[in-house]
Design a binder for these strands. Structure first.
Lengths: 235, 235
DNA sequence: ATTGTAATATTGAATAGACATATTGGACAG
DNA sequence: CTGTCCAATATGTCTATTCAATATTACAAT
């Protein structure tokens, strides 16, 4: 077993120690850290162990690594916050409320100019334009407006969106490789007032997402939440 | 060198293949995956390689792993979006604008009731209450209102916040172990109108953050951005 | 001076083997 | 049937070694 004084040190310990040293200014922002080999010697472990620790610290944004150059402390340490993007159904059910979905509008049309420009589509590209509502305990929770690119997802033409939300349908039917999410704050316009039962100008939280399948746009969606909605994360 | 047909497969390839199989339903949600040893045999690589692939997929939220039980596809695949939380100075400078900071107010006082309750402080806890502005090219960019717990950070009493923003001061002086971030949408009130040069009721994007050092609250801050601000991430 | 090239240092990744740790499920006693 | 204990097993981690990728540096050729 080995006695208490020489407990083996793992990549966790190394991470902690490196973080401590950076915090204490022993390794200043911008400075070059010892090489993996030197650190392995210092900590009395294999280089792979140091490598894993440093790799995770780089992932976390504390340090930057480059082959041959070495590892250095980032000058302005970036913090990341990871938010869970739930399915609306889940978000509602997690609150302990009853979820209900309703399709408001579905049409096949040529993409409007602003959509074409925002998504870099070809002119005259056909899209499915969908509007729908998500309710929590029969009170409006989220208004969703979505454009699905037909040439990427032809199956949407036969999809039944009366009972299943487009998000759930897409999740089951269409894989995607990339996504971009934007969070913002918008004022309720006439349509939003009606659907979200609020008054003109009310500040609302909006999440927009575009998804791609290998450089072809799959869909662009705007989800606007009821008044007072927020997103929280801990780390 | 080996010929082209037997290129070595790496953990990246394994990740991709697992993702593909889950998407295609070959491995259904909730189902148990083969063990690392079996997968290593299938892919013709070492178990450590499979391990890394699966570890990252678990990190990503696609699968769940438990010792002895094995690895299974998550029933409701959670998507995470990771947002970069920059220092305001950086955010402004990254836009190519000139950053300017101004302290608006600093006082030492007993924490107001709502702060005590929100942060679970003891009654009569002393806090530094700070208000300040961040400008981009001399136009308002962000209004910051902050409460710093003196018993956790006594050094704040001597901090010079005329030239350095509290955020930067804290970053250099005080480590923290946990943080909670909340994003929301708020209407501009009288104070916000004045500082952010906007009109009453304008929807604004707000980021709130509480940080702890080992279960002791360090600070709570509310950062409200100018009209039109948004946060974007790609994954 | 500039450009090309080769040597070299450092991280990135894979392998095979070993031990550690948590958890399940069964054997067994009560 | 119930609770306890133990063995089997899958993941978690570490080691030592090898090779690959890549950025830097030095130096030579133009």
């Amino acid at each position: 077993m080995g006695n208490a004084s020489d407990a083996k040190i793992g990549f966790h310990d190394i991470k902690q120690e490196v973080i401590r040293r950076v915090h204490r200014g022993i390794w200043a922002p911008g400075s070059l850290l010892p090489t993996e080999i030197e650190l392995a010697a210092e900590f009395g472990c294999a280089r792979a162990t140091v490598n894993r620790a440093m790799r995770e610290l780089a992932e976390q944004g504390l340090v930057e690594r480059k082959r041959k150059s070495g590892t250095r402390v980032k000058t302005s340490p970036v913090r990341y916050a990871r938010f869970e993007i739930e399915l609306v159904r889940r978000a509602v059910e997690d609150m302990g409320a009853k979820y209900r979905y309703a399709l408001v509008h579905k049409s096949i049309e040529a993409a409007p100019d602003w959509v074409i420009s925002q998504l870099s589509l070809g002119p005259g590209e056909q899209v499915a334009h969908i509007k729908c509502m998500h309710y929590a305990d029969n009170r409006p929770f989220q208004y969703e407006e979505r454009w699905i690119i037909i040439s990427t997802v032809p199956a949407i033409l036969e999809a039944d969106l009366e009972t299943q939300s487009p998000n759930e349908w897409l999740l089951n039917e269409v894989p995607f490789t990339d996504a971009e999410i934007t969070l913002s704050s918008v004022a309720a316009d006439a349509a939003l007032c009606e659907f979200l039962a609020t008054s003109q100008g009310t500040p609302l939280f909006r999440l927009e997402r575009t998804t791609w399948l290998d450089s072809k746009v799959v869909t662009y969606v705007r989800m606007t939440f009821r008044q007072g909605h927020s997103m929280t994360t801990r780390y």
